[in-house]
Design a protein around this nucleic acid. Sequence first.
RNA 1: GACCCCGUAGCUCAGUGGUAGAGCAUUUGACUUUUAAUCAAAGGGCCGAUGGUUCGAAACCAUCCGGGGUCACCA
Length: 498
Amino acid sequence: MRELNDQELRRREELEHLLQSGINPYPYSFDKTHDSTHILQNFKDDTADDFKNVAVAGRIMALRRMGKASFCHIQDASGRIQIYLRTGDIPNYDDFKLYDIGDIIGVKGYVFRTKVGEISVHGSELVMLCKSLTPIPIAKEGEDEAGNKIMYDAFADKELRYRQRYKDLVVNPQIRDVFVKRSKIITAMRRYFDERGWLEVETPVLQPLYGGALARPFTTHHNTLDTTLYLRIADELYLKRLIVGGFEGVYEISKNFRNEGMDKTHNPEFTMMEIYVAYKDVFWMMEMVENLLAHIAETALGSMDVEVAGQQISLKPPFRRLPLLESIKEYTGKDVSGLDTSALHTVAKELGVEIDPKASAGKVIDEIFSEKVEHHLVQPTYIIDYPLEMSPLAKKHRSKEGLTERFELFINGQEFANAYSELNDPIDQRQRLEEQSRFRAGGDDEAMTLDEDFLHALEIGMPPTAGLGIGIDRLVMLLTNQDSIRDVLFFPQMKRLE
RNA sequence: GACCCCGUAGCUCAGUGGUAGAGCAUUUGACUUUUAAUCAAAGGGCCGAUGGUUCGAAACCAUCCGGGGUCACCA
């Protein structure tokens, strides 16, 4: 164990003193009657009688001792409230010397207004509920001349905030709002699906073969079976097996794992929602997603308009639909339809898009789109009609040669969703996965593996199906106006400390 | 992976070659309506690590470790 500093040693001494006085510094429960915010909002001169006997509990966040009387602020899940303690009013006032900022206490008493009008609890009973042994990086709140709130000595070191999120949550309670919204967003999504009769399911995280996306996996080993297992990169192939089995609507909200770079929008484990609905196609899915996002925004935020990085974004349906090749024409002036691979490379060069000379036609189109188009797509836009070779699990377009029935949804210049009319022709699917195997053999370590069991399932027969994936973390970022994925994850991945 | 920036007290930060600093937090004393409480005093540091330059390094140089940011890679 590391060495204790003077403040930690002193707190342990206080703990000893409490024990010697017969006080349990870690008791079992406390009958709390009110949240701080409820009191602050509802205490009025004519309701004072309702607040003659309250019991509040929380962590001491500020402390002002004045000899025979003391004030402190405690923080509970709802907010903060001031406590007034006075010798004579509580039998154990002298013990209060042994209390510190950071301790969790319970106070019974009546609510009153101080001389300067702050609604406070006048304590008649004080209980230690948890002695805190290490000081928290306390921030003080104040006001500047203009009356704006300022924080003094805020706990601002991002590394420490991410590594010790518990401390961050105590000291910067406003960040809780992001996580509360995150929970509301996911709840709203679940309700929307459940109300339509689609079933929430769980499929394996540990998979003998990984598939359903193009990404490098995390690899692990199972001792008993003495076999390699992969952490899933997507749920897709298992959820489709359930549609084969006869379920007509299944969804899963779960962590996926991808062994790739980390940045503002990528964490190695992230939350994905995938849903598959039988007898539907990608056009139906576009309408569903519009309604879903509008519903979520209204339920979780109370508005379909969100502000992100200073821009107003409207999630009001319908969203614009723009074929991939047309989007390139619109934002670069180049018509790339019908061009062969070498002609595409020439266009990329003209546009100043650097690209691997061996890249396939689909890859070149994707690169041009990523560099020249994607960031323009601020308002929700469905990019549709993706080339076949970029979409090994999507059905061929019913009327457009060489394209698939697929969309990706872009908002604020980022990808939010990906959906297909799912490929259910087992022979076509086999050919496409065999092509992926050739890419893999050619050195593309993100190409898909061929999963015979999945193909076997398709041979049994999967009804026409629409499928969708939505990145939950990015959705939360959008709806809470956060520009880093780390700020919407409680515990983002960090390098291990030695 | 490349480049830029950062690492000093529990927290936020100053300190560009000559005895290690401030505010808050902490300790002691005073104070029965304070709210960045106030007043008086005190304690607290392997200056991220290792080498080097120098009479002398927190500072300059090199390497490493950790972090932040920008870009690249990556559907």
